[in-house]
C-alpha cells in the first residue's frame, strides 16, 4: 500500500476517496431529511433547509449515519473502551477473528487434503469434485443454522460451530487452487522425475508441493476473506451476544444504524488487514524459496 501511494497514485486515490465522502454526505441529507420534515410538521414548526442540513448529520438513529458519526462511534468503542469490555468493538472483532482464524486453519488443511487426494486418485477426482462444487452452490445462510443446531445437539458450542462455517467457505478456494497447483508441473518435469525412478512421495515433496506454493497463497487470500464472512454469518443464527455478527444483528434489532456501520467498517478493516497479511507472508515465503526475483 505504501509503495502504491509513493508511486504517484496518491492524487487519484485521494480524489476518489473525497468523491465517495461527498456522495455519502449527500445521501445522508437525502435519506435522513424526511424524518426531520416529519418532526417539524408534527411540532407545527417551520424548518429551514440549513436546519435540516445540520440535523440530518446528528440523528440518533439515522437511516444512513454520516461518516463523522461512524468515526466517532468507532473511536468511542475502540480507543475509549477497555478491550475486555462487552462494549468494545475490539473485543467483538477479536471474537470474530478467533473463529475466522480457526476456521481458516481447518479450511486450509481440509482443502489441501482434498486436493492431494484428488490429484493422486482418479476415483477421488471423479467422485469428490462434483460434491465439492455442489457444496458451494448452496447458500451459506441456508446451511449455517443447520450446522449450528446440529453441532449444538451433539454438545459442540461456542467457537467451533462458527469456525466450522468459516471452514465450509474457505476450504473451497484452497481445494480448487491446490488441485491446479499440484497439477502445474509440466510433462517434462514429471518425465525427469520418472527417469530418476522417483517414488510417489518424492515426486510429491520434491516437485508437486513446491510447484503449488504460489497457487496456495493465491487461494489463501480468497479463503481468509471467505472465512471472515463465514464467522460473521455464523454469529447471526446463534443469537450470539458477542462478535461483529452479533453487533450487526443487535444493531438492526434496535435500529442502531451507527453501530451497524461501525461494525461493518471494522469487518472491512479486518478483511483488508488479513488479506494484506497473507500477501506479506506470500512474498516472504516466495522470496525465501528463491522464486521472487
Amino acid at each position: 500500500m505504501l509503495t502504491t501511494l509513493s508511486k504517484g497514485s496518491t492524487i487519484p486515490i485521494l480524489t476518489i476517496t473525497a468523491a465517495i465522502i461527498v456522495f455519502w454526505y449527500a445521501c445522508v441529507v437525502w435519506l435522513n431529511a424526511p424524518f426531520e420534515r416529519d418532526q417539524a410538521e408534527r411540532a407545527n414548526a417551520e424548518i429551514t433547509f440549513s436546519q435540516i442540513l445540520s440535523k440530518t448529520m446528528e440523528q440518533k438513529r439515522p437511516v444512513l449515519p454520516a461518516p463523522h458519526q461512524v468515526i466517532v462511534e468507532i473511536w468511542n468503542t475502540t480507543v475509549m473502551k477497555n478491550v475486555t469490555s462487552k462494549r468494545s468493538l475490539v473485543y467483538h472483532a477479536w471474537i470474530t477473528l478467533s473463529s475466522t482464524l480457526l476456521g481458516f486453519a481447518f479450511g486450509t488443511l481440509l482443502g489441501i487434503a482434498l486436493a492431494v487426494g484428488i490429484v493422486h486418485s482418479q476415483t477421488l477426482d471423479k467422485s469428490l469434485m462434483p460434491w465439492i462444487i455442489t457444496s458451494q452452490t448452496i447458500p451459506i445462510l441456508a446451511i449455517a443454522p443447520m450446522i449450528i443446531v446440529v453441532l449444538n445437539a451433539v454438545g459442540i458450542q461456542g467457537l467451533l460451530p462458527k469456525a466450522f462455517i468459516s471452514m465450509y467457505l474457505s476450504f473451497f478456494p484452497v481445494a480448487v487452487g491446490m488441485v491446479k497447483g499440484l497439477r502445474s508441473p509440466d510433462i517434462m518435469q514429471l518425465d525427469l522425475m520418472h527417469t530418476y525412478n522417483a517414488s510417489k512421495a518424492q515426486l510429491f515433496w520434491k516437485l508437486r508441493w513446491p510447484s503449488s506454493i504460489p497457487f496456495l497463497f493465491t487461494s489463501l487470500k480468497v479463503a481468509i476473506a471467505a472465512s471472515l464472512v463465514g464467522a460473521i454469518v455464523g454469529e447471526l443464527p446463534t443469537g450470539a451476544i458477542s462478535g461483529l455478527g452479533a453487533r450487526l444483528l443487535a444493531g438492526s434489532y434496535y435500529g442502531q444504524t451507527i453501530q451497524i456501520w461501525s461494525a461493518l467498517f471494522m469487518a472491512a478493516f479486518l478483511a483488508a488487514t488479513l488479506v494484506w497479511l497473507v500477501g506479506v507472508i506470500d512474498r516472504r515465503v516466495l522470496k525465501q524459496m528463491g522464486m521472487a526475483q
Binding site: 517434462m188 518425465d191 527417469t195 530418476y196 525412478n197 513446491p210 506454493i213 528463491g290 522464486m291
Partner: peptide, 17 residues
C-alpha cells in the same frame, strides 16, 4: 540409472539453487 536425460528446456526448479 544407466542414462542421464537432457531436455530441450533446462527445466531447473526455480525454488532450488
Amino acid at each position: 540409472r544407466a542414462y542421464g536425460y537432457v531436455f530441450q528446456a533446462a527445466g531447473l526448479y526455480p525454488w532450488r539453487t
